[in-house]
């Protein structure tokens, strides 16, 4: 759990603070996406958590402990850190990069080696193939995986990520987001992720914190934000298609009725309602069949069910 209490940051003596009296409590094991227009203070807020930026006022608690008085170096070794440009050390192998923090913490060589292999496997890179590779030989997505493995190395309870997918091309990005979501679910960390991409925030965040001019405007689940924006700014920020965006947050399975419909298009179980709607519009059908992983039809979703569901939620 991370709790910020009245966190303020002023750069320089005069002018408006970059971060202005932000109070927020991020529950254990959840991912919080910090989002807002550039200059809103989201990155500064994140960087105060590991004291890369010293707060001017306020207190920060990690797992109940006030860390504002802690030695920053000790604190940072307990917090995973992934920066925008990944920041893999180019003169070290993948294994050396991942082993950085365990090495700083003085783990034994055998324990570090074991941990490196574990992490490579976790992020989907074969240990035998990638251990001794230099970073410049990796693709953007592979670097990002190594970056996350490195941040997870010492099993920190908290992880900070600054635009983790910023350097990835749009096509690979979406797949990587899906994979990371799985990985992050498995490791159960409290994660703070800074992003400027609303879709990314809605997809990756269990909760989304929207900031503007240093202030926290709304902190809620993606669905709550899309359903009830706190003010006109949030409403404009999430866009006029927020009802559609909400559909992409929901799985079709919740709207499913038993039985299969003849001649209807099919969609995989776990797909979003938005995908189902797109399929319906594209094919002109009135229903879509939902198919399980084994190929068997689990049930169907009708156009009316989708529209009524959207209605009820709006």
């Amino acid at each position: 759990m991370i709790r910020l209490e009245g966190i303020t940051k002023r750069f320089g003596a005069v002018g408006k603070p970059s971060v202005d009296d932000v109070t927020i409590e991020m529950p254990e094991g959840t991912t919080t996406a910090l989002i807002g227009p550039s200059g809103c203070g989201k990155t500064t807020t994140m960087r105060m958590i590991n004291r890369m930026v010293e707060p001017s006022a306020g207190r920060i608690f990690i797992e109940g402990q006030d860390v504002t008085g802690l030695d920053p170096v000790t604190l940072r070794r307990r917090i995973g850190y992934v920066i925008q440009q990944i920041g893999l050390f180019p003169h070290m192998t993948v294994a050396e990069n991942i082993g950085t923090v365990p090495h700083l913490l003085g783990w034994s060589r055998a324990k570090i080696e074991k941990r490196i292999d574990e992490l490579l496997a976790l992020v989907g890179l074969e240990p035998e193939r990638f251990r001794s590779v230099m970073p410049h030989r990796l693709s953007g997505g592979q670097r990002q995986r190594v970056g996350v493995a490195r941040a997870l190395a010492a099993d920190p309870p908290v992880m900070l990520m600054d635009e983790p997918f910023g350097a990835i091309d749009p096509i690979a990005r979406e797949r990587l987001q899906d994979e990371f979501k799985e990985i992050l679910k498995r490791v159960r960390k409290t994660i703070v992720m800074v992003t400027h991409d609303l879709d990314e925030a809605m997809k990756m965040g269990d909760r989304v914190a929207i900031m503007r001019e240093g202030r926290l405007i709304q902190y809620a689940t993606p669905d709550e934000i899309l359903a009830a924006p706190a003010d006109a700014f949030v409403e404009a920020f999430v866009g006029p298609d927020r009802a559609l965006k909400r559909l992409s947050l929901r799985g079709v399975d919740a709207l499913m009725r038993p039985g299969s419909v003849a001649d209807a298009p099919t969609i995989a179980s776990g797909a979003s309602v938005r995908e189902a709607l797109a399929r319906l519009i594209g094919s002109g059908a009135r229903s879509v069949n939902v198919r399980g992983a084994d190929g068997a039809v689990l049930g169907h979703v009708t156009r009316d069910a989708i529209l009524d569901g959207a209605d009820a939620a709006a």
Binding site: N50, M52, V73, T74, L75, R76, R77, R78, Y81, I83, Q84, Q85, I86, G87, F89, P90, T100, V101, L104, R150, L160
Partner: peptide, 15 residues
């Protein structure tokens, strides 16, 4: 030396 690398190193808890 790339400032991002120094930032990453500091953020990971290097003195």
């Amino acid at each position: 030396v790339d400032a991002d690398l120094v930032d990453a190193a500091a953020g990971m808890g290097m003195t």
